[in-house]
Design a protein around this nucleic acid. Sequence first.
DNA 1: GTCTATACGACGATAGAC
DNA 2: GTCTATCGTCGTATAGAC
Lengths: 190, 190
Amino acid sequence: MSGDTRARILAEALRQFAARGFDGTTISSIERGVGLAEGTGSFYRHFPSKRAVFDAVVEHELARLRAIRPEREPRGADGGTRPLSERVADDLRFLREVRPLVEILIRERDGMPHVAERVRDVLVERGLAGIAGDLATCGERGGEDPAAAATVLLCATVGYFLTTEFFGELPGGVDVERYAGTLARLLGGS
Amino acid sequence: MSGDTRARILAEALRQFAARGFDGTTISSIERGVGLAEGTGSFYRHFPSKRAVFDAVVEHELARLRAIRPEREPRGADGGTRPLSERVADDLRFLREVRPLVEILIRERDGMPHVAERVRDVLVERGLAGIAGDLATCGERGGEDPAAAATVLLCATVGYFLTTEFFGELPGGVDVERYAGTLARLLGGS
DNA sequence: GTCTATACGACGATAGAC
DNA sequence: GTCTATCGTCGTATAGAC
């Protein structure tokens, strides 16, 4: 039960960094969160510094997200191209998993530009490439400017996620399925 | 030159709160930013506490944004309905003005839920209502679900803003005009 | 591996001279 | 209205007993 204290610190630190930021999180509050006595330096038996646990949290999250990122243009045997609306719904589910790291990135992106770049790589770069592929393999109209249409698809997806997560429920209460369906329809997919 | 120290503190505090957050901003750094000697309590001759200047900054920004928010469904004499793409570009220009307050809101939204609600009102609520009006007055197709189409328009606009501001340049380098034009075309507007 | 105790610095805030 | 000086508190981190 005590051998995995390091892992419990990692999970607790992720929660607190995402909720209250780096400065708003204290060693004492992490200790309390994992059941250690507050104010004692027991934390330091597992990590050498606050910054060290922060870096470890980011690395751990990046590795986890790379593992669960939805596959684009599946190379599997089925080969069937799923409707665009289902792919948008996939992306929105994936974005929910990314939320803690995005929360950390938004608060702490100054002073950690390398992390910003790696998150950007996982989310934006691969997202756009995959979305452009979606539009192509679906054979849908991208209009006269398919590259810009792919950008619209990406921004509309990320925008729905950020707006609902950071500003609360959307007016009109458009849920994920309805949103994904409408977006796909506007882009010409089913 | 010294009578407006209070106003200079307000402007400097806005900059620092947006760039480094509430905790990351110190009274000393504000004093230094406005030319006062660092570490002296001169700040306190103008505001009673750090929290007080924070609240004043938020109020000041909210008032400024309400004043410059782009008018929807103009009641002016011209009466001409501008193309949807120009309205999207208007919104994106407005969002650039909102950036400091959004930056503050994203970092500090816990512990100031009333502010989150007021910003949400200025941006999302009125934004959606105005956008729905845009779609209606433009007489464009919203597809089979005009309300959801309006939500897509809003999220695509906010998403472009947040993605470029927080994650840097978009891959493919789609600029504002190209993005606004493509988005309007997909929604059926010119 | 967890505790007691503490050193050290940073920051918010106040008192009071000028 | 700005400065000098200082108090109190909190947070990171370390030393060392158990």
